[in-house]
Each structure stands twice: as C-alpha cells, then as structure tokens.
Design a protein around this nucleic acid. Structure first.
Length: 572
RNA sequence: CGGGGCGUAGCGCAGUUUGGUAGCGCACUUGAUUUGGGAUCAAGGGGUCGCAGGUUCAAAUCCUGUCGCCCCGACCA
C-alpha cells in the first residue's frame, strides 16, 4: 500500500477527550475514530491489527477443536427470560423492540443463544465435547464508557463455549482454553498474568481473568511476593486471623465515647488497637436490611457479600431505614440486636475481648465475645484483601498491581444447561445436564493493552505479530528519482514475496515521514537517503530499539524476510 | 444516578463577563522555493457558533428548555 493513498489520517494534536496512551495513540495515528460515546469505527490500520489479533485467536481456538460459528447480535427476550437474566442484567442490557412491540436485546454475551442451539441439536454423549466459538460484536450500555476501546459500548469479543458430559470433561476444556489463552496473549506480545477471579453475573464458579499489567488498568490484582498466587481484589481470600487469642474472657463493659464517629476515633479514645474493634455496618441487600460485622481495620468486599446473599442490589442503608429497624446509625452493634439478620466475617468469632458499638448514641462496649454475647446468622469470608495481608498459599506479604482484563475463563457448570434444558443421553440411556464453560477475549481491549505496554513518547511500537504492516519503505526525498526508483523496486519485490509493506511516496519532508513512521509503529523501516547512492546500502531501522543496520540494496529483501521471521519466532 | 467541566471549520483553541453580524494555529487546495526529524513565502477553500424556543432593531454572546461529550464518584462486569 502507498502511504499517499492510505486512509490513515494522523493528527498533530491529540483530541482533548483522550486520556490514556492507547486511546491517544489510536486516535492520533488514524487507527480509530469515534462515532458516539463508546462507539468506534476502525480505520484501515486499526482494523488490520484487529484482524491480526483475531487470526491468532482463531489459530489457537481451532487448535483445541474450537469450531467457529456466527450467532446473531439481535436476540429475542424469551431466551433471556428462560435463563432469568432479562431481569438480572439490568440497565446495561441494550433493549430494543421490533415493529410488533416485541422485546429484543442487543447481545451483551451469548450463553443463552448458544445453549438454545446445542439443546436443540445435540442429544447424545457421542457428540460431546463441543466447543463452538465466534468473534462478534457485543453490546453493553455502560453507564460510563471510558478510555477509547478499553471500555466501549459496542466491542468485538471472541467467545467460546464448551459443552461436556461431566465435571472431568469441563476440567479438560477449561485447561485447554486456559493454555490457549496464554498462547494468544504471549503471541500478541503482552506482559500478562492469569489471576483467580470472581465469576460475577455470568454465573458459575471457577474462573481466571487474564490481566495485562498496566498502570491505567481498571482492575486491581493481588499477587504474592513469595509464590505464584495471584487473584483479583474482588476474589482474593486469606486465612482468617484472630486477635486477643489465649486471653481469658473478660466481663462486658459499657463505656462513654462522646463524639467518636470513626473507627480510628473510637480506637484512639479507648486506647484499643483498631484490629480489636468490630465495625458494624447496615446494608440494604435488595429489600432486606442486614447488619454486617467486620474487624475495624478491614473493608467489606461488596462483591463477596452480594454473592453470599445472592442479591442484585447492595448498598449502605439510608439513616431512616436504619432507624426503622430499631438501630442507631453510627453506634450499631450485634449485642442485643434483634429483627435483622447478622452477617459476620469469618474473623469475628476469632476475636477475643473485642470492642463494638453498644446500640445507643455515644456508647461502646468492651470485652465482647462471639458466642457468649451474641451470634451471627451467617459467618463467612466477606473481607477485602489488601496489600500486606498474608498470602493464603505461603504466608508471604501480598502486593498489588493494576491490570487490564483482556480475557476471562469461567466454569459455568450446569447453570445454563439446567435452566434452559440442555441435556444429553449417556451410554446407559440416562439424561444429564451438559456441563458448560465459557471463555471470552476482548479483541479491542487486547489491542489497547498491547499499545499501553508497547509505546514511547513518539508513538506505538507494534510487536511484529500484530503490526498492521511489517515494513515501511521511506525514500527521503521524493524529488530524487534514482532513490525513489530504488525504494519502488524494493517495495515491488517485498510485495511479490507477500511481505506486508507500505511505501511512503508522499511529497512530504523527511521529518513528517519519520514522525508518522514513529507514530504508526511499523516494526521495520527501510530508509533510502542520499548516501545510499554512493554506498549502495540502505538503512534498516528497528522501531523497538532504534537500532540501524546498513544493508546492501541487493540483500534487503532477504534480510527483511529473515528479520520478520526471527521477530515472529521470538513471540511463539 | 450524584458532583464538576465542555459543545465555535477535520484537530487544538480564542471570542461570551460588557449583544453590533466570526477569528487564530495546525490540517486542506494552487504556485514557487526547500528535502535526513513535524519547512518558507504567496494566494485560496471550508463554520446556519450542538439543537429548539424566547428577549431585542440586532444573539456565538442574555433567558428557558433540550441533546451530546469529557472527568470524578457511585454502579456494573
């Protein structure tokens, strides 16, 4: 392709709305353009990279017997009512009506439709396992689309679904997908880490998220300084820690605590270590008011709490709602509290002689003990793990990092197959629910993550595997016919060899060409300058490290091909 | 959904306080010179100032409504 003709409008200035590097560079290099909030067009260079990523994904999916299909983006409400998600998905689901006023949605994901097909078409264990996948647009009406392709409302996702006869089969499908994902992200040149994750509204249990490490990432991950443990902050668990262990149980004591609003103030006023206090919080879980107990220095993990209570909406109760159930805002405690369920973190029963709210304004209790003075309706892990907590595997301190979630694998088990009747007959003629898994990759998000990890102040630095073109040929002076002819010869030769090549044939000054070249981030650049005529050598420049090799013009095509091969092999 | 900010040419912005009929830089077109890191000169083209009402002799500017975009938070995955 000739740069003079390519539709890749570079900008000299960065659009004001772009905040992070990948968004800025995608816009500035003319790879994408915005159509509406969170909705984008991919221009030729951007789409070529998307296609490269998709080609890698297809290779790896096909290698584990994935079978590509294409399901509709417009889906009838009935299927979503069957699975129960028409209600659960909420405002994020993009709902539409047809001319007969029937309800449809633009698919946010495809579990319902794929399960619909498999239940209709597959009856026997002989046909399983089955691993259909597709690469297709998903629609999620995000409240706040952000960061260009990172969180958009329409986005390309590869989604694979596995159908197996039993849990052992699912384990195999899951492991295959997990390994394939590792191959995909490695081949894309990403620095990533698979982490244990919550399975969220999609449902099921057993999940890993693939995190591309980047400071702009929206997800926080915890990883161990001493072993391989890594998990999202929503999912991470640690061994419960007791306080006051071994002490004699003392008598409960009521103390006057004027103007102590926060746990820190109470702790300081009473001279009690904050990890020996208990924080009581009143939550509204769907329509139920519950009292939640956690050690004073810890935070509630609302994802864990919502999963535990199996609710859709969870938040702090309003003051009047707290009073309505007979509690005093700011001074709640479990002792003597009646009429609401009490949910305690698993550490609470291990706290000997702890402090907590007394139930009346300006009063707290000392030397309270679980079991003797009160009990909870549910004791479970509901705490947020933080940096410095001990690793659940080896005990070393945990560290935190930010990550971009580029892929996720889930074990769905029989959640959808049982809700929607996807059953098969085994060798004994008995019916069973199929055992399912699902596996997603955000293609545009992967492209953004590659840029986040591979750029400098001049532009993008594409890994060879996903670069929109492999080579850029630059004749420095468009008026120098001899140089232009040499460049043109190389361009034609590379095209003959099926190398993906661009030639910058514009009547621009060298600085403009070089700056656009840096911005586009094509891995290899061949420069034909004045001295080329005397030496018979052209410059081969590597975008990644700026290294320059002088190469005989007659050898160029061979040297370039060899380098492309080497650079692709390095990512295998 | 709450808080804040912004809509003027493809991009970046000024003009709005104090109403007088739209401007700058980049980009684009033509010509000349220039050619190893975003050239120079000259001449051009392009905007119903987000949209709809209203006030006024006169509205980018004042008033009302509305739509859209961005950021922070909440929410969601």
């Amino acid at each position: 392709m000739r740069v003079s003709q390519i539709y890749a409008p570079t900008l000299r200035e960065i659009p004001a709305e772009a905040e992070i590097a990948s968004h800025q560079l995608l816009m500035k290099s003319g790879m994408i353009r915005k159509v509406a909030g969170g909705i984008y067009t991919y221009l030729p260079l951007g789409w070529r990279t998307m296609k490269k990523i998709m080609a890698i994904i297809r290779e790896e999916m096909d290698a584990i017997d994935g079978q590509e299909i294409a399901m509709p983006a417009v889906q009838p409400a009935e299927l979503w009512l069957e699975s129960g998600r028409w209600r659960v998905y909420g405002a994020e689901m993009w709902r539409v009506k047809d001319r007969h006023d029937r309800d449809f949605c633009l698919a946010p994901t495809h579990e319902e439709v794929v399960t619909f097909h498999i239940r209709n078409d597959v009856r026997s264990y002989r046909s399983l396992p089955l691993r259909p996948y597709q690469i297709q647009n998903k629609y999620r009406d995000e409240r706040r689309p952000r960061f260009g392709l990172m969180r958009s409302r329409e986005f390309l996702m590869k989604d694979m679904y596995s159908f197996d006869v039993d849990e052992a089969g699912l384990d195999i499908s899951y492991k295959l997908a997990y390994d394939a994902y590792s191959n995909i992200f490695r081949r894309c040149g990403l620095n990533f880490r698979p982490v244990e994750a919550d399975s969220g509204a999609i449902g099921g249990s057993g999940s890993h998220e693939f995190m591309a490490l980047a400071d702009c990432g929206e997800s926080q991950i915890l990883y161990c300084s001493g072993c391989d443990f890594a998990a999202t902050d929503e999912f991470a668990s640690i061994k419960p820690v007791g306080t006051g262990t071994g002490e004699e149980l003392r008598e409960v004591e009521t103390v006057y605590t004027p103007d102590c609003k926060t746990m820190e103030e109470v702790s300081a006023f009473l001279n009690v270590p904050i990890n020996r206090t208990v924080k009581s919080m009143v939550y509204k879980a769907d329509d139920e008011i519950v009292l939640v107990l956690i050690r004073g220095d810890r935070q509630i993990n609302e994802v864990k709490l919502a999963n535990l209570l199996d609710v859709v909406e969870l938040g702090f109760a309003e003051e009047d709602e707290v009073r309505k159930v007979g509690l005093e805002p700011g001074y709640c405690g479990p002792v003597g509290t009646k009429g609401v369920r009490i949910i305690a973190d698993e550490e609470i029963p291990l706290m000997i002689n702890h402090e907590c709210g007394q139930g009346q304004k300006d009063h707290h209790l000392l030397n309270v003990n679980y079991g003797r003075d009160y009990t909870a309706d549910i004791v479970a892990d509901i705490k947020l793990v933080e940096a410095g907590d001990a690793c659940p595997c080896c005990g070393a301190p945990l560290l935190t990092a930010r990550g971009i979630e580029v892929g996720q694998v889930f074990k769905l088990h029989t959640k959808y197959s049982s809700a929607m009747g996807a059953r098969y007959v085994d060798a004994n003629g008995e019916e069973h629910d199929m055992v399912m898994g699902c596996y997603g990759i955000g293609v545009g998000r992967t492209m953004s993550a590659v840029i986040e990890q591979n750029h400098d102040d001049k532009g993008i630095i594409w890994p060879m595997s996903v670069a929109p073109y492999q080579v850029l040929v630059v004749p420095v002076n468009d008026k120098d016919a001899e140089l232009c002819a040499m460049a043109e010869d190389l361009y034609q030769e590379l095209k003959r060899r099926r190398v993906e090549v661009l030639i910058d044939d514009r009547a621009e000054r060298p600085g403009v060409k070089f700056n656009d070249a840096d911005l586009w981030g094509i891995p290899l650049r061949v420069i034909f300058g004045k001295k080329c005529r005397e030496t018979g050598k052209a410059e081969l420049k590597f975008r990644a490290d700026g290294r320059v090799e002088e190469v005989e013009v007659s050898q160029l095509a061979d040297v370039i091909e060899a380098n492309i091969r080497r650079m692709l092999d390095e990512l295998k």
